[in-house]
Write a protein that binds this DNA or RNA. Structure first.
Ligand SMILES: [Zn+2]
Ligand SMILES: [Zn+2]
Ligand SMILES: [Zn+2]
Ligand SMILES: [Zn+2]
Lengths: 135, 135
DNA sequence: ACGCTGGTTGAGAACGATTGTCAAACTGGG
DNA sequence: CCCAGTTTGACAATCGTTCTCAACCAGCGT
């Protein structure tokens, strides 16, 4: 049996690279691709490998510290977000993002799901459009 | 002026390949990747190039005859659907799909969008869960 | 049936985002 | 300071998707 460790020790170390990624994430509030974030880090004078950017973003994502979603081309884009459940209204052109909440939608999805006997529900909901500035 | 033709002639010819893709699509009701559809066509004795499968699916997709969405890995998956706007309740395990409609959600998304000044709206909404059969 | 014209196809190259490899560098604890 | 386990980065490798372009074929006038 290997079920003897109560604390799996996340063991996530504070490195220069992870700090750089965090700093970059703090520098914008729209959704950006890993490549763009990598470029931003370079512009901020730091040097972090692209692979590390991907790894760090993935870690932050399932720690719930950043939201990752896919644009219409299927590319992953990231952004640091509030920690409550929400969705996004994203500008298709400039990426400007607004966090939105819809209790009614949340209720609707779970109702639909249970109505059809589906369990362990999750959902994705994103709204794309052209923001006022880009019209 | 080139605004003289009332019927732009879609010019989509009925070829063996397109018929094969249509036939394949009729053979399943869950979402499948282009690769899988390509394989299915082969199994049905036909031979259609992968590029053609992609092209045909893309054409059918923006003609509204099939729905295309992306799984959690960002891969495009397709399925022939009813022609009215709807969303999906998909089994995470076996792929079983239920089409669902939510007028309230449609209203909510457009309301949210206009409220923030966004135009030319589109949205994605998919519900994932475990179906009764897979519990 | 014949031939022309433009849409269509397929094999393979090209692409681009993401992930894997693995030796070197680093971190925290003893 | 040392050690063991993490983390990193340059680069290769995947892999889904698109592009290229010459060969092909459907529709149409003859
Ligand atoms: Zn968010
Ligand atoms: Zn939600
Ligand atoms: Zn559908
Ligand atoms: Zn809708």
């Amino acid at each position: 049996m290997t079920s003897t460790d109560p604390t799996p020790r996340p063991a996530v170390r504070p490195t220069r690279q992870r700090r750089a990624v965090a700093a970059a994430l703090a520098g914008f509030d729209d959704f950006r691709s890993a490549q763009e974030i990598h470029d931003l880090i370079s512009q901020q004078g730091e040097s972090v490998g692209l692979a590390t950017v991907y790894r760090t973003l993935a870690t932050l994502a399932d720690a719930g510290e950043v939201d990752m979603l896919r644009n219409e081309d299927g590319e992953a884009i990231w952004r640091s977000c509030s920690d409550t459940h929400h969705h996004h209204l994203v500008c298709r052109t400039c990426g400007a993002t607004v966090e939105v909440e819809g209790p009614a939608v949340e209720r609707w999805t779970s109702a639909i799901a249970t109505e059809h006997g589906y369990a362990d529900i999750s959902h994705t909901l994103e709204i794309f459009g052209t923001c006022p500035a880009c019209r």
